[in-house]
């Protein structure tokens, strides 16, 4: 329960950075933090005490494994997170190229 709540708090820290920060790089960092929080929550939900990783090493071994489904869901999501982060950074780089600042309030003023 405390472990789950810590993941939710990490998610909220990321959301805080997205909503209240004015620097574009900080906003991208906030997105990355939200992704970490959700990935970790999924992996923690699938854990069972006294179990091993879901890999069969002998045919007749006792199959007391942790839940493989959240791991399979998160495995792809981690790589996708890198792709989306890179896309957001490309947009930020383009904006910096045009306005010479990362401050979104300044960018809004310079519009026109």
């Amino acid at each position: 329960m405390i472990a789950f709540l810590a993941c939710i708090v990490l998610f909220l820290i990321g959301l805080y950075a997205i909503v209240t920060k004015r620097n574009l790089i900080k906003i991208v960092i906030g997105f990355a933090l939200m992704e970490y929080g959700i990935n970790l929550l999924f992996a923690l939900i699938g854990f069972r005490h006294g179990s091993v990783a879901p890999i069969i090493t002998q045919i007749d071994m006792p199959r007391r494994f942790v839940d493989p489904v959240p791991q399979a869901l998160v495995l792809t999501a981690i790589v996708i997170a890198l792709g989306t982060t890179a896309l957001m950074l490309a947009v930020a780089l383009r904006i910096y190229n045009r306005y010479k600042t990362f401050d979104i309030a300044e960018i809004r003023k310079l519009k026109g």
């Binding site: 790589v79 890198l82 792709g83 890179a86 950074l89 490309a90 780089l93």
Partner: peptide, 10 residues
């Protein structure tokens, strides 16, 4: 190849 392309471009 996809991640290497992203790195090269970015």
């Amino acid at each position: 190849a996809g991640l290497f392309t992203i790195f090269l471009a970015l």
